[in-house]
Amino acid sequence: MSKLLQTLVNSIALGSLYALTALGYTLVYGVLRFINFAHSDVFTVGAWVSFSIATAFGWASTGSPWFAMPLVLLLAMALCAALGIMIERLAYRPLRKAPRLNVLITAIGVSLFLQNVGQLQWVFGTQPQSMPPVLEDSSVAELSGVHIRMVDLVVVSLTIVLLGLLEFLIYRTKLGRAMRAVSFDEKTASLMGINANRIVSITFGIGSALAAAGGMFFALKYGSIKQSADATWVLLGLKAFVAAVVGGIGNVRGAVVGALLIAFVEMFGAAYFSPHMRDFYVFVILIVVLLVRPSGLFGSSTVEKV
């Protein structure tokens, strides 16, 4: 019983990490109809940037004040938002009218670029680093053998807060309405006086900021940060992507549900079957979903027009 509950707690924590990243995929797909392969690398950069900031403040050795975590989080989110906007401006905007295959290849190029530049000695380097403890890591609660870590608690609650903000932004503000309009039909939205390019930039910014938050939480939760081209990141990004697809890409709430689902399958599979096959389960889910219901659980299937 305690194993079951513990796995449940772990999967909710992991699921919220996936959700933060999956939202970026879904948001970008919503407005531009393409999969931003470089998104998982923005996640990686988020983790590394938060590490660099925390190290620059000297919190690695001395311990950290109470405002350390929010400060690092906000800075990392701002920097990654800028990075995301820059990527969109330089790499994707020139290809707005190009075939989708070209955009896809460009996205892979951007992803490779971020990975490998991050590996350079004067950027982040190739050594794995350990994240400075900007958040006290202790077991805050223990209920009949189930440990709830402080990090998990903070991650889950902050994720809920961020998701709430995103929900508010999309469905309750003018900007959100503009985003939905562009997502629905870019041309008509432009005719109605919406600056579509600006909306796309903002969407990229929001998605990247959420990915940065995910990256930082990931670094906090697991303590160590691997080099930026490590396969772990690619896999992590892919799983978040799978979450977005399972939930129905383009659907914000679906992405969260998909992320939780993926995390549940992964964690329960690892706990009750074989821990080495975690990635296997996720990709099998992806393939099954794509074959059975390509539009995802909550996606609306679109009729292709010629």
Binding site: T106, G109, V110, S111, L112, Q115
Partner: peptide, 14 residues
């Protein structure tokens, strides 16, 4: 090598 390849990929595509 890889940063250059990646850049080449992006530039060729554009």
């Amino acid at each position: 090598r890889m940063p250059i390849y990646a850049l080449a990929l992006i530039v060729v595509m554009i």
